[in-house]
Nucleic acid binder design. Structure first.
Length: 644
DNA sequence: ATAGGGTTAG
C-alpha cells in the first residue's frame, strides 16, 4: 500500500485522483486474489482501471495489475483490454510488449479476440510515438488494401506522427486523403498540421491553412492562436505576431497563460525586459498562472542581461502561489551547495571519464550499422515469409503482414531498435522546497553555459547527480553542446558515454550535438556518415539538424554536398530559415563562390525571410570579398596591359 | 488528443 499514493511528478494530476485510482486498484487486486469470497471482477472493471492508471501515468501500478490479470485468474483480456495495454506500453516507450501483445491477439484461440481497427490504430500510434513513422506508414498502406477503412482517429494519429517527424509533405497528403474520404478534420487535426507547418518554416502554407480553417467553419481555439502567434514569431514575423496578440487581447478572447508566455519569451530574447515584466504583471492581474516555463524564460532573460536584482520585481509581480519564492530558494540552496567545497573531484575534466578519441562515435556508427543490418535481415525474413505463405498456403491472411513481421522479428528485450522518441523531458511541477528539480537544473545549466561558465555548470551537474537525481536527455545534450563549442571533445564524448550507460533516451538534439562536434573536429566525413545511417533507419531531420549539417559540411569546404543537402531539405518539405540562409551565404563567401553567395541572399529576400544582425556581419564579409575580387581582376587587366 | 522555456548560424 502507499506506493500508488505518491503522485507522479510528470503530470499535474490531483492527489485525489491518485487516491481514488489507488483504492480502485487495491480492491481489484483483492478480488483477483480471490480474497473477497466468490466475487470475480469482470473485464469492464479491470479495463476501466487500466485506463485510469494509464491516464494518471502510474506505470508501476499499471504493470502490477497487468501482471495479475495475466496470471489468468478469472478475467480474460478482451479486445478492449488488449488495445488499452498496447497503447499504454507504447506510451511508456515499451514497443516490445505492445508488439508481443498484438501477436498474442492474433494467435488467440478465442473467437472474440483478434486485432480490430482500434488495435491497428493503437499500434500505428505506438510506432509513431517511438519514432518509427516509416513503419507506421507502411502498416497504414497495407491496412487500406485489406478492407479496413481508416477512421478519423487513424488520420489524426498519422498526421500528428508525420508532423512531429517533419514529414510535412506526407502530413499534408494524408490531410487531403482524409477529406477525400469524407472525413472533416476537426480543430485538433488542423492545429497539429498548423504547428507542423510552422515548425517546418512554412509560414505561408501555415497562414493559408489557418485561413482555410476559418473559411471551412472549423472551430478555432486558444491553442490555434497560440500556435499561430508562436509560429509567426519563430518565422521572423514578430510584428504580425505581436499585432495579433494585441488584437486578441482587445477582443478579450483566445488568450491564456501560454499566449502571454510566448510573447514574454520573445521580449526576453530581444532584451526587452521591462516590457516582459510588464506583461507578467498584466497576466497576473488577469488571473493567468505564471508557471515554471514562463519563469524560466524570465530568469534566462534577466541573467543574460545581468539583472539578478530584478528578481525582486518578479516577486512583486507574481504574488499568487509560491512558485517564485521556491524558485529563488532553489537558487539560493544551489548557490550554497556550490560554495561548499565538498567535491572530491578537483575539476570538471575529471567529471566525465574520457574514454578517448573516436571510439564512442565509431561505436555509435557501428550500432547504427548493426540495426541497419537487422533491418536488412528482417527484409530477408519478409521475403522468406512471403515465400512460405505462397508455398504452404496456410490461412495466414493478415490485415498487415508488415505488422506481423515487426512483431516476429522482435527480440525478447528490444530497446536497441528505438531510434529516438518524441517524448520531451518530463515536466516537474513543484516537488516542494529544497529539492533539486531537473527542469530548474536544466534552466540554470543553460544559464551558466551561455555565459561560458563551464566549471559552474559542471559543479551543478555534479551536485545534483550526487543527490541521485536523474538527468534527462536535455541535461546531457546541453552539457555536451558546451563542451563541443569549447573544443573539449573528449569530455563531450564522455557525456555521451555516460548518457548511454544511464540508458537515457537520445533525442534528435543529441544527434544534432554529435554532428556539430564532428563538424568542429573537422570530421565532416563522419558527420555525413552518421546522417546516412540516421536516414536509413527512418530517422528524421529537423531544421536545426539541416542547419548544423550545412555548417559542418561548409566549414569542411564540401560545397557540393552543401548544395545537395540544401536541395534535399527543400524537397523533403522543410523550408530554409534565417539560420540556413546566413550559413549558406557565409559558406559560399568563404569558399570564394561570391556569385552563389549573392544568389542565396536574393533567394532569402525572395522567400520573404528577413535578414538579421548575423546576416549583416556575413554580408560585410561578402562585400569585402567582392571588393577584393574586383581589385584582383583590375590588376590582372593592368598586368596584361603592362605585358603588351 | 493539439501550443510555450532550456540544443543550430557570425
Amino acid at each position: 500500500m502507499g506506493l500508488w499514493l505518491i503522485p507522479r511528478p510528470s503530470k499535474p494530476c490531483s492527489t485525489r485522483l491518485f487516491v481514488q485510482v489507488g483504492l480502485a486498484m487495491s480492491i481489484l487486486l483483492k478480488l483477483l486474489e480471490g480474497g473477497c469470497s466468490s466475487q470475480v471482477p469482470n473485464s469492464i472493471a479491470s479495463n476501466e482501471l487500466l485506463v485510469a492508471l494509464r491516464k494518471a501515468d502510474m506505470r508501476v501500478e499499471f504493470k502490477q495489475v497487468f501482471d495479475k490479470l495475466r496470471e489468468n485468474k478469472g478475467v480474460e483480456m478482451d479486445n478492449w483490454g488488449y488495445n488499452i495495454c498496447i497503447h499504454a506500453f507504447g506510451c511508456w516507450g515499451d514497443l516490445g510488449t505492445s508488439l508481443s501483445l498484438y501477436k498474442e491477439m492474433k494467435d488467440s484461440n478465442l473467437e472474440s479476440v483478434g486485432p480490430d481497427l482500434p488495435t491497428y490504430n493503437s499500434l500505428i500510434h505506438v510506432l509513431c510515438l517511438v519514432g518509427k513513422v516509416n513503419d507506421a506508414l507502411t502498416v497504414w498502406e497495407e491496412l487500406k488494401g485489406s478492407g479496413h477503412e481508416p477512421d478519423a482517429i487513424t488520420y489524426r494519429i498519422l498526421i500528428q506522427g508525420c508532423c512531429k517527424s517533419y514529414r510535412i509533405d506526407e502530413a499534408t497528403n494524408i490531410f487531403s486523403q482524409m477529406q477525400l474520404n469524407g472525413y472533416i478534420p476537426d480543430t485538433i487535426v488542423y492545429n497539429s498540421l498548423l504547428d507542423g507547418l510552422f515548425k517546418a518554416r512554412k509560414v505561408n502554407d501555415g497562414c493559408h491553412l489557418f485561413e482555410k480553417m476559418v473559411q471551412n467553419g472549423v472551430r478555432v481555439s486558444t491553442w490555434t492562436y497560440n500556435i499561430l502567434v508562436d509560429g509567426l514569431f519563430k518565422n521572423g514575423r514578430a510584428e504580425a505576431a505581436y499585432t495579433l496578440f494585441c488584437d486578441l487581447k482587445k477582443k478579450g478572447q483566445f488568450v491564456d497563460g501560454v499566449t502571454y508566455s510566448i510573447v514574454v519569451l520573445q521580449h526576453c530574447k530581444e532584451g526587452l525586459l521591462e516590457k516582459a515584466l510588464g506583461l507578467v504583471e498584466e497576466m497576473e492581474r488577469r488571473g493567468f498562472a505564471v508557471d515554471l516555463v514562463t519563469i524560466s524564460s524570465l530568469l534566462i532573460g534577466l541573467y543574460k542581461e545581468g539583472r539578478w536584482d530584478w528578481t525582486d520585481k518578479l516577486m512583486k509581480h507574481i504574488r499568487e502561489g509560491n512558485l517564485v519564492p521556491s524558485v529563488l530558494k532553489w537558487k539560493a540552496d544551489m548557490e550554497a551547495s556550490m560554495k561548499t567545497p565538498q567535491s572530491s573531484r578537483k575539476d570538471y575534466t575529471q567529471l566525465f571519464p574520457s574514454k578517448g578519441d573516436f571510439s564512442e562515435i565509431m561505436s555509435l556508427i557501428n550500432s547504427a550499422n548493426s540495426t541497419m543490418d537487422a533491418d536488412l535481415d528482417s527484409e530477408d525474413a519478409r521475403v522468406k515469409d512471403d515465400d512460405k505463405n505462397v508455398s504452404t498456403d496456410t490461412d495466414q491472411w493478415s490485415s498487415s503482414p508488415y505488422m506481423d513481421q515487426l512483431a516476429n522479428q522482435l527480440k525478447p528485450i528490444d530497446h536497441s531498435s528505438q531510434l529516438f522518441s518524441f517524448s520531451r523531458g518530463q515536466r516537474v511541477q513543484d516537488k516542494g522546497e529544497g529539492s533539486f528539480d531537473i527542469d530548474m537544473v536544466n534552466t540554470f545549466l543553460s544559464l551558466f553555459l551561455a555565459k561560458g561558465k563551464l566549471s559552474l555548470a559542471c559543479k551543478l551537474f555534479e551536485i545534483f547527480s550526487d543527490l541521485g537525481e536523474n538527468p534527462v536527455s536535455y541535461t546531457y545534450n546541453s552539457m555536451m553542446s558546451s563542451f563541443v563549442k569549447k573544443g573539449y571533445f573528449n569530455e563531450a564524448w564522455g557525456v555521451l558515454n555516460e548518457m548511454g550507460e544511464k540508458v537515457c533516451p537520445t533525442d534528435i538534439a543529441t544527434y544534432n550535438v554529435i554532428i556539430q562536434g564532428l563538424g568542429k573536429m573537422g570530421r565532416a566525413d563522419l558527420a555525413s556518415c552518421v546522417l546516412d545511417k540516421l536516414m536509413k533507419q527512418g530517422g528524421y531531420l529537423d531544421v536545426v539538424m539541416y542547419n548544423t549539417l550545412i555548417n559542418a559540411l561548409g566549414k569542411a569546404s564540401r560545397i557540393d554536398e552543401v548544395n545537395k543537402l540544401f536541395e534535399q531539405m527543400k524537397s523533403s518539405g522543410i523550408n530554409p530559415d534565417v539560420v540556413t540562409f546566413n550559413t549558406l551565404i557565409e559558406v559560399h563567401s568563404k569558399a570564394g563562390r561570391l556569385k552563389d553567395a549573392y544568389k542565396f541572399l536574393k533567394m532569402m529576400l525572395d522567400a520573404g525571410c528577413s535578414p538579421n544582425h548575423v546576416t549583416d556581419t556575413t554580408l560585410d564579409f561578402l562585400g569585402k570579398e567582392i571588393e577584393k575580387m574586383r581589385y584582383q581582376k583590375a590588376s590582372m587587366v593592368r598586368n596584361k596591359d603592362d605585358f603588351r
